[in-house]
Design a protein around this nucleic acid. Structure first.
Lengths: 290, 290
DNA sequence: AGCATCAATCGATAAAACCGATTTGTAAAA
DNA sequence: TTTTACAAATCGGTTTTATCGATTGATGCT
């Protein structure tokens, strides 16, 4: 059992196709086939079912894959630690972020980059659900999102700031002079909301359910800039945290009445995983900008 | 970076001597030297300082070794899981135990072995300190001991039963008719106690300190059967949990007065590590015997 | 039936892990 | 200081194995 074989196995598991996996790994199909077989021989159990010309993962393969991933990850974390030890002249930060936190992220990336121009970024926008999935697969170092209802034990949470939930309107709206608005009043309006999966949408539907109200949802959409365009048209309203529309023109926001109508921005990372020095510095800059 | 190299590295780290490490690994010193060098080249950092003819671990080596161990352990845990998946016809249980729990261990091992004769045992008697050290190095699957003052976050603790602290005397002792005894009275007696490192000794000295008393410790000894022989002579007394001397002949015990004069037997294992099926079954049998 | 696809297998090659012998460098002993 | 002993590094050669391309065999699709 070698790390090489574990890598091969995981790629084959991911694609469930030896030929494609071999291409992806830049080895021949024959090599991959042999190495998987060798691993199976050593483990004395099949990792894949060969059903005709297609393969599926066995129960053993499914159970084993978690450990294989952990084994590789630990080795990589060790490697990463050594790189960091030298300096911040190399490396990559992978950050997941919800659209609402775009502004603070952008500021931080710009400032970080002037100080450490060699560090690469991978920035992934997505729903909380998608980001947490990626975090769990070690595809992201850290994510920035709002607090979740369910907290997971192996995550580390750091609160950043709170932001009120607001009704977002076109600037020239009938409601433009209101200082605040109730959920009941909102339930009379035609709404365009972020798609399910966005934590904001979950939060809103929970809030309405608690008040035994039903929002009029005319549009669900999974792209926030487009959502804002729709709102600017004046035909619909939406509900977002105030932070989301900071620096946006042509729209205004009205705080929603009621306690607990605020959300807390969070940094989420995996507890037991070594935190890259570059990530630490990045987060320090982020916090200093608040 | 391959698991093979990580294993070589860890053995070299352990022995801090390439020649001995190579022997222990059944490879030549030249191979070990080359493989370590190759690993260092890949990691672009030295893992060992070569000071003359002797080697020491660098800071990088020390930091990296934890990840190397984790990487290997995760791979091994995956392997173990697959073995367990098949059956309980193979495998090994490594148990650490303090002498006090010898009786319950023995019963469990006997019963387990009649059901699963293929499973091997490695049984290590030692002080709590020694056992916890071994548990942390993945040399033991589980340990049986009394509760510690300090609990560690990455351990899982399962309470088994409580046992009173007792003064142990030769059966034909001047104290034989006493139903209980105070710490103050004990402080007048000549004691033989288990060596430092035994959790019982720690517990006793704490108890005396709280009562501002000083025990008369005539003998410290790191072997419990011998300790009991000394007590049987009638020249000394000792303090042990009642469980420890269950089924021992020629000695009697007198409960010690005062609250908190009991200890709780514990199963301790590492939280995040996969628990072997055989270990689970073993512990189930152990609990059923209580 | 014929074709396309994919994993397994075969034989050959290139890479690498490995070994024994030797060298180099240091520390301890004389 | 010189000698001796020891331990890691290096060298050249051998063995092992990872890899490849080509082929085979089995399956699903048209």
């Amino acid at each position: 059992m070698e790390l090489r074989q574990l890598k091969y196995f995981l790629k084959a598991k991911e694609l469930l196709n030896f030929t494609e996996a071999a291409n992806s790994l830049n080895i021949s199909q024959s090599t991959l086939s042999q190495q998987i077989k060798q691993l199976e021989d050593e483990l004395q159990i099949s990792l894949f079912n060969r059903i005709g010309k297609r393969i599926t993962l066995t129960e053993a393969g499914a159970l084993f894959s978690g450990f294989a991933l952990q084994s590789i990850s630990k080795a990589n974390e060790g490697f990463q630690l050594l790189k960091d030890l030298n300096n911040l002249n190399t490396g990559k930060i992978a950050i997941g972020v919800t659209y609402a936190l775009r502004d603070i992220l952008t500021q931080t990336v710009i400032e970080f980059n002037t100080k450490y121009p060699e560090i690469e970024f991978e920035i992934v926008f997505g729903t909380s659900k998608e980001l947490i999935e990626k975090l769990n697969h070690f595809e992201l170092d850290v994510i920035l999102t709002f607090e979740e209802i369910i907290t997971e034990n192996h995550f580390k949470y750091q609160a950043l700031f709170t932001s009120p939930m607001t009704l977002v309107t076109a600037t020239e709206s009938a409601l433009k002079n209101k200082k605040s608005i109730s959920l009941k009043d909102i339930s009379k309006l035609s709404l365009a909301l972020p798609a399910k999966g966005y934590s904001t949408t979950q939060f809103i539907s929970d809030a309405f359910a608690k008040s035994k109200l039903h929002p009029k949802v005319a549009i669900e959409i999974n792209d926030i800039p487009t959502l804002l365009e729709l709102v600017k048209s004046g035909n619909w309203y939406t509900i977002l945290t105030q932070t989301t529309i900071k620096n946006e023109k042509g729209i205004s926001c009205i705080p929603i009445e009621g306690k607990n109508m605020t959300r807390t921005a969070m940094i989420i990372s995996i507890k037991e995983v070594y935190e890259k020095k570059a990530v630490k510095v990045f987060l320090d800059i982020l916090k200093s900008l608040l």
